[in-house]
């Protein structure tokens, strides 16, 4: 009995290895294919086609209708909204109810965007064309810039904040210039920041945030047809009801409040 088991060891080993060899070859070939496979070119063409189609559509609607653009970070994108609309989508929806003309809304916001990244997008030539045909631009930006100090030790905050603020001011000036260059007549709605830490004791951060809002307010309101929409007070006493489960982005109710405020401010611009 034992002898026959001993005899079987070698054949069993050999057979299992022979069976396994094709799988190993398959695995290695797959690994090579995956790490140095050919580039996919068609995707790029798709992207360009989309842009072209879009601008044709916009031109059609533009006689008589309105084209609205949204730019910026996850707030502009609508992250956290159960209906996926965000303040931008909700504002457009309300506008659509009031006005009797077709509205096209394009949302080019990207989660995590900082102002420098938004500026890059504005500098894109194709995007400049898109800007020319726009009646209103909604922007939410800066939250990711100011939040980046959180990764640093508290002792370095003041200095880091000042650096970020300087860069932000320059970039904001450039943003305003870019928009006006391409489109002198559009209404620009710029969203203020709200505080995420009403519950936490962090007076330093609140101070930075208020300063940030004040600077933005001053720079935005200087310009013709630029409006700054405060959101700080909207969340002050009802943070939990207005935030999504990630405790960072507003939920549907939070976005609804922002949209209501925007509508109140911009209605005259469209009904005149």
């Amino acid at each position: 009995m034992l002898k026959s088991i001993k005899k079987a060891i070698w054949p069993i080993t050999l057979v299992s290895v022979i069976i396994a060899v094709p799988f190993f070859i398959f695995g290695i070939l797959q690994a090579f294919q995956v790490t140095q496979g050919a580039m996919q070119e068609e995707e790029t063409a798709n992207g360009e086609n989309r842009i072209e189609e879009r601008s044709e559509e916009i031109e059609e609607v533009n006689d008589g209708g309105h084209h609205i653009l949204t730019l910026g970070d996850s707030l502009a994108r609508g992250t956290g909204d159960e209906e996926g609309l965000g303040f931008a989508g909700r504002t457009v929806q309300k506008l659509d109810e009031f006005l009797d003309v077709p509205i096209i809304h394009d949302n080019y916001a990207v989660e995590g965007f900082r102002i420098s990244e938004m500026l890059e997008l504005l500098n894109n030539n194709e995007f400049q064309e898109e800007l020319q045909h726009t009646d209103m631009i909604m922007i939410s930006i800066g939250g990711n810039d100011v939040r980046s100090i959180r990764g640093l030790p508290a002792s370095e905050w003041t200095e880091a904040y000042q650096n970020i603020e300087e860069g932000y001011q320059e970039a904001l000036e450039e943003t305003i210039r870019r928009i006006r260059e391409a489109n002198p007549g559009a209404l620009v709605v710029f969203l203020g920041l709200y505080n995420l830490d009403y519950s936490d004791e962090s007076p330093e951060e609140t101070e930075f945030l208020l300063r940030w809002n004040a600077i933005t307010y001053q720079m935005i309101e200087k310009e013709q047809d630029f409006v700054w929409i405060p959101t700080y007070d909207l969340f002050q006493f009802q943070l939990t009801e207005s935030l999504s489960p990630d405790l960072l982005h507003p939920n549907g109710a939070g976005y609804e409040k922002i949209a209501n405020r925007i509508i109140e401010v911009i209605m005259p611009f469209f009904t005149d």
């Binding site: 992207g47 989309r50 994108r77 996926g84 949302n107 916001a109 990207v110 894109n124 995007f127």
Partner: peptide, 8 residues
């Protein structure tokens, strides 16, 4: 929804 953005 992000995929709809042609400028990504």
């Amino acid at each position: 929804r992000r995929l709809d953005n042609p400028f990504i």
